[in-house]
Design a protein around this nucleic acid. Structure first.
Lengths: 343, 343
DNA sequence: GTGAAAGCGCTAACAA
DNA sequence: TTGTTAGCGCTTTCAC
């Protein structure tokens, strides 16, 4: 008794169409050198049989694959979800499959995930998590990535990394400066900053911009309360609690991302503190809900979806001699959560 | 001149370690039947050389792959982002890579994506988009999926589908009923419903539950204004505009998801309509920001992350004789956006 | 324009 | 316990 074949092979299609496997291959992959009529017939037969090529076999034989990888800190976070959306969009357009993985803001996990992607022989990888300030921390990742690139792999990152690869970089410094200038311009002088870990370059840069604005306004940044907490809504809540307890004179809070700002708004509201009448709050990123909050959130808009798109497009381009750096536009978006300080 | 090998092969590791390629394979894949000392040595050599196995070759030879697929409508949508987070979490735990793709709520695109996943020989696919009410619409997908399963592929869906596979199903009917009963219980009688396309089973079910509650309250559901718009924030805004224009007597709006509810809140606010004093608003899903809105949103909580986890776990289990159906707990969460109607 | 055949890098019988 | 070898399904020279 013959063992029944389960999956269709290219050979089955070839036999059915009465051509050689080579011709079948050429017909289906759209290669040149097959007479149009034959190619069409093969395609028709394949379609009717419901044949789907085995991409593993194809990748193995051709040495290239139609897939790319994306590393994010956490896909449930709107910031990364929107970036992923952009990456998926370009991927679909180019007929690429996209593997997404979490790094959980952990450099070691990030490295593991990169290794896995390399093992999967993806054609390109996009790293969307923020880099770490400490270059040593990324030495291993950098080495792996270099080896990967020597073998023809493409890499692009979003944000500032020490990886020596193409990058889409939002100007976090200028953005931080813009939002701080806005709040200072409203007349605030007693300002607190709510931030995540300064080990992340994204955060470090935003803080740098804020510091610049303070310096320009003649304010000693060392005296400004910087509340460091998780870079999440819960972190924002914790920061707000601390501000209400230990910095009662504060009239404005600069959150280093929207998530924290949302948590801050929530906590202030539950404490009966009116925004922006008593305290102004600003965010950073302009996630989709920022405009629908009440009050709507003053923030710095980063085009996350476009950044995802650009990053993959950059990675897909012919590699350049030296790393390319593409700036992402940022834009101060003034909404209802900021106003002059109470008289 | 010999062409320089770029990527390391298993053979290179085997030679370096002084063993056969078979032994090297067994050592690295953790298979039994190798002396511990040899296995350890091989692993050490591989690590030092920086060898990463070619997963395509492995999949092709072994006929199985350590990857799974996830199909969502749109990863930028928090609902799906949270589900994806759950899937990625389990995937990481099990050492699986996850391919994510967009269907864009388009049955044809969904089919294409499924085909692509099948071509990639993923071990399992999780479909997270809502199914369509019209069974004919999914006939093709169903056929493809059946063939995939006959070849050993696993499938699980989130939500009600006509696909004949394992499913994680939120009880949308009861959830719809619960939120409608809550609003009716507050005394509202002039209620509008804001919804997305009823072609989606998720939405159809929620509406069914709502209708049940209305019937139980002795209200003719046919007289209730049902505003159909995009199942997004923008759709919610459009629905709110219409309600303000054409249904001025409405004291409560039931939105069939949080996204729409957020858009509704936003539009009502910009029109100076107070929530919940003048109009109550409810949502569905309990996306993370729902609790941080102002007013915080009354909604039906669905454990999205857990649903994603369960779906992949279900797909990874040994297949059962008949499709399994796992209920996801839902819970009415009463917050600030609902109150009795104005006197 | 088409076909035969040699791999792509790995796993899994089967032998030793 | 270890090694030899035949594929996995496809692409791609190289002949014809």
């Amino acid at each position: 008794m013959e063992k029944a074949r389960t999956t269709l092979r290219l050979q089955d299609v070839a036999e059915q169409a009465g051509v050689s496997i080579a011709t079948a291959s050429r017909s289906l992959s759209g290669a040149t050198g097959v007479s149009p009529s034959v190619a069409e017939r093969v395609r028709e037969v394949a379609r009717q049989m419901g044949y789907v090529a085995n991409l593993h076999a194809r990748s193995l034989a051709a040495g290239t694959s139609r897939s790319v990888g994306l590393v994010v800190h956490e896909i449930g976070d709107p910031y990364f979800a929107e970036i992923a959306s952009g990456v998926l969009r370009v991927g679909a357009r180019e007929g690429l499959t996209v593997q997404i993985c979490h790094s959980g803001r952990d450099p070691e996990r990030e490295l593991d995930q990169i290794r896995m992607l390399v093992a999967n022989r993806v054609g390109a990888v996009v790293i969307a998590g923020s880099g770490f300030v400490d270059p040593a921390m990324q030495a291993a990742a950098r080495a792996d990535l270099q080896a990967y690139r020597r073998n023809g792999g493409r890499v692009a990152v979003i944000g500032r990394h020490h990886l020596g690869v193409d990058a889409v970089v939002p100007d976090n410094i200028k953005g931080g400066r813009a939002v701080a200038e806005h709040v200072l311009g409203l007349g605030h002088r007693s300002i607190a900053v709510a931030t995540g870990s300064r080990e992340l370059t994204t955060i470090a840069d935003r803080l740098t911009g804020v510091a610049e604005a303070f310096a320009a306004a003649g304010i000693d940044f060392d005296r400004v309360p910087i509340i460091e907490a998780a870079f999440t809504r819960d972190g924002g809540k914790a920061a707000a609690e601390e501000i209400l307890t230990r910095h009662r004179d504060v009239t404005a809070v600069l959150a280093m991302n929207d998530d924290m700002a949302i948590g801050i708004l929530s906590t202030l509201r539950s404490h009966g503190v009116s925004v922006p009448d008593q305290i102004s709050v600003s965010g950073f990123d302009d996630v989709a809900v920022a405009q629908d909050l009440s009050p709507s959130l003053t923030t710095v808009r980063l085009p996350m979806v476009e950044m995802g798109e650009s990053a993959l497009e950059l990675a897909l381009k012919e590699p350049a001699a030296r790393p390319r750096r593409q700036r992402a536009a940022h834009q101060l978006v003034v909404r209802g959560s900021t106003a002059p300080p109470p008289a």
